[in-house]
Write a protein that binds this DNA or RNA. Structure first.
Lengths: 196, 196
DNA sequence: AACTCTAGCTAGCGTTGATAGGGTTCCTGC
DNA sequence: GCAGGAACCCTATCAACGCTAGCTAGAGTT
């Protein structure tokens, strides 16, 4: 039985190697240049091996995206300060969100631009994505003040996502991100105007 | 000379035919299924004819996108009510923006998702996009209240764009759009709290 | 009427994602 | 220790992609 286990372990390792390599290549040269041939070359296997692990190329992107969502959820969790006001907490998480997207643009793209989840219509939203949304809702909750925390979280998330994608597409300058986040945070925390 | 003019007119017609057909096909089956062969078939010309009009396929998408931006700018302009408060004006334009994106998802994708403008690095932002941004700034201006209208406009635009793309990717439900827009508008107009 | 030039076609190149089928290697059971 | 069988991975190939070269036919010019 130990032989069988070794095989399984090796397969699992290769599975992860494919994902890590795909992510690396995407960050280096963009997803367009991650072809099945070049990816297979880089892991030093032949092209069809990829299809033993994943149904198709989209499935690889999807798997990378899922790992990214898990990572993002934990980053957001870690960014929430233990003390301080709710507005500062929101601003801190906002910075963490945009910083994550700026640090790993290809990963972010896989998560929320390429892997739109349209085709998997009947499936529920994947758990890692729900975790990210829950984390956002957690940090905006204290600022709701009568507003629906869920809707508030959706709006916050949308604004962050819009900032990130428009900045990534060079429609907004990277330099202005912080100023925009400050304005956004202040606006959404409006029920408690700045103590002068 | 009239013969030459006729040729030019025919070329211009075909130019527009290509763009209109590409847009149609994209809305019907998505940009992935708009291939140069199928597009050429549909306009009843051979594939290389496309390359007389456009440098490559991306240039076609880009041209469609530019037309879309012009259209969006005028839609936003028309949506701004002549009378009423600034908050109502913002909400009206917000609805127009999201409705446009929902009505023409493939067009919107060409405008602000696919055609990211990254590759045309040194070029300035195209005028139609500047027009859209100016239109947004126009409607948020009266709500600035000391805030930088430009930054405010960028944040508003980002939030709308995020809502649109997350909704289009089935990450947010289409049904909640209006509620989200109301919350967003109220938050951004915070310096003037609702007269009770 | 002969010439030129342009426009659009057929054919093909290199690359893409994905699959089929043959061989080789390794494990299992006798 | 060995034969049978299963798992595995590679070579070769497919259809479709974006794009280009080169020819042909027809229009415009002189």
């Amino acid at each position: 039985m130990t032989a069988r286990e070794r095989r399984l372990r090796e397969q699992a390792n290769r599975h992860q190697l494919i994902l890590a390599t795909a992510r690396e290549m995407a960050e280096e040269e963009g997803w367009d240049n991650v072809t099945t041939r070049r990816l297979a070359d880089r892991i030093e296997y032949s092209q069809p091996v990829l299809y033993q692990h994943f149904k198709n190329k989209d499935a690889i992107v999807h798997a990378v995206a899922t790992e990214g969502l898990v990572e993002l959820a934990s980053v957001l969790r870690a960014a929430r300060p233990e003390s301080g006001g709710p507005r500062e907490a929101l601003q801190a998480v906002a910075r963490a969100y945009t910083a994550f997207a700026a640090r790993w643009p290809a990963l972010y793209q896989a998560m929320l631009v390429l892997d739109t989840g349209e085709e998997r219509g009947d499936e529920r939203e994947p758990q890692p994505l729900l975790d990210v949304m829950a984390e956002i809702q957690e940090v905006v909750g204290p600022l709701a003040e009568g507003r629906d925390p869920r809707v508030l979280a959706e709006v916050v998330w949308s604004a962050w996502h819009g900032l990130v994608t428009l900045t990534g597409g060079a429609r907004l300058t990277e330099a202005g991100t912080d100023e925009r986040l400050l304005l956004l945070t202040d606006a959404l925390a409006h029920p408690a105007p700045q103590p002068a």
